[in-house]
């Protein structure tokens, strides 16, 4: 069995785009907090944008490769990556041999990184997804976040491939765009202005379910109870105490607080990457504008594979190359060629 053994899980779980179609039964879709970064990791490995990967939260984490060589790529939040003590780069594929320890530091910037592997995770989908929904007992290979000792089954690396990288520009330091509603009529006009003017801080009580925002208390015009209705990713509920709660991947499917605004699809990943204690402001856009941006974002996601480049080995990589036992790989590559 080839795969990764979890040595130190940090805040780690297997995620893809999420499990859809069962929200009517109260099942949270779960899925990656930052779908763009998941797509980057998968593009590097020439596979479907939403293939499942290991999502790694802001804390340090360690895994080891067992059973054979695998090809990995880490994207999303930047952090120190040590492959048996040698530093490796974000947004770059890496052939890693059996017995190698992959150590990830705490995130330097952002909240979530995605460790994808060539061929994806070798576990059966449940209702179309590997993502973890703890209450409903869904998730593959485990129906819960990862723990020490867990085994994540992967596919063997194709050894003949050259390594790949992608150069990404840093995301803009722009406000997070929202469409007002669906319950903006539950707030005074001045409250909505305060919401859009205030610089909010992501609270330490935030998690994959929701981020709480500290700032000023927002006053409700018609009380803080509505007859519960449906919740989407990016809905901003305002609690009884006037605190904004941004509903994210592990959200409940319904909720009873009024929702002042909704983060647009294109900005969800950028919002989820704001670290605890980080600041955020919101900017109002129309539905038409949000949909124009959504089309642009979709094109950008689809263009990711075309931006992946082949990496040339340099002198500084020689130590790594030696340890990767390239001579042995070359024999395997010839054997592959002979079979074809």
């Amino acid at each position: 069995m080839i795969g990764l053994r979890v040595i130190d899980p940090g805040y780690m779980s297997v995620q893809d785009a999420g499990r859809f179609g069962a929200q009517r039964y109260g099942l949270s879709p779960a899925g990656a907090m930052d779908l763009f970064s998941l797509a980057v990791a998968n593009a590097l490995l020439r596979q479907k944008a939403a293939s499942a990967a290991v999502e790694i939260g802001p804390f340090p984490a360690t895994l080891s490769v067992v059973g054979g060589p695998v090809r990995l790529a880490l994207a999303g939040a930047d952090r120190k990556i040590l492959i048996d003590g040698d530093e490796a780069k974000l947004n770059t594929t890496l052939l890693v041999q059996e017995g190698t320890k992959v150590s990830l530091g705490a995130t330097r910037l952002g909240m979530f990184s995605y460790l994808a592997s060539e061929g994806g995770i070798d576990a059966p989908a449940q209702l179309g997804s590997l993502s973890v929904e703890v209450r409903a007992s869904f998730g593959s290979p485990y129906p819960r976040p990862l723990r020490e000792g867990d085994f994540i089954p992967l596919h063997a690396a194709s050894l003949a491939h050259a390594e790949q990288y992608i150069a990404l520009e840093a995301p803009p330091h722009a406000p997070i765009r929202v469409v007002l509603g669906p319950q903006d009529d539950y707030f005074y006009k001045e409250t909505i202005e305060s919401f859009l003017r205030c610089r909010w801080t992501v609270s330490p009580t935030s998690n994959r379910m929701s981020y709480r925002l500290d700032g000023e208390a927002l006053a409700h015009a018609k009380g803080y109870n509505i007859v519960s209705d449906g919740i989407v990713m990016g809905h901003i509920q305002v609690s009884g105490a006037g605190q904004p709660l941004v509903m994210l991947a592990d959200r409940g499917t319904t909720g009873g607080y009024p929702k002042i605004a909704t983060i647009i699809t294109a900005d969800l990943g950028r919002f989820a990457q704001i670290p605890i204690g980080g600041g955020v402001t919101f900017e109002k856009v129309s539905v038409d504008e949000a949909q124009r941006v959504a089309r642009e974002f979709s094109r950008e996601m689809q263009a990711l594979p075309s931006r992946v480049r082949t990496q040339n080995a340099t002198i500084s990589d020689s130590k790594l190359l030696l340890r990767l036992n390239l001579a042995g790989d070359a024999v395997d590559a010839l054997a592959d060629a002979a079979e074809q």
Binding site: D229, G230, G234, H235, I264
Partner: peptide, 16 residues
């Protein structure tokens, strides 16, 4: 009512 750019809520009332 719009729920961002990828969902709508069709409301029939505000009572149970």
């Amino acid at each position: 009512l719009p729920c961002g750019d990828a969902a709508i809520t069709v409301e029939f009332g505000d009572i149970i």
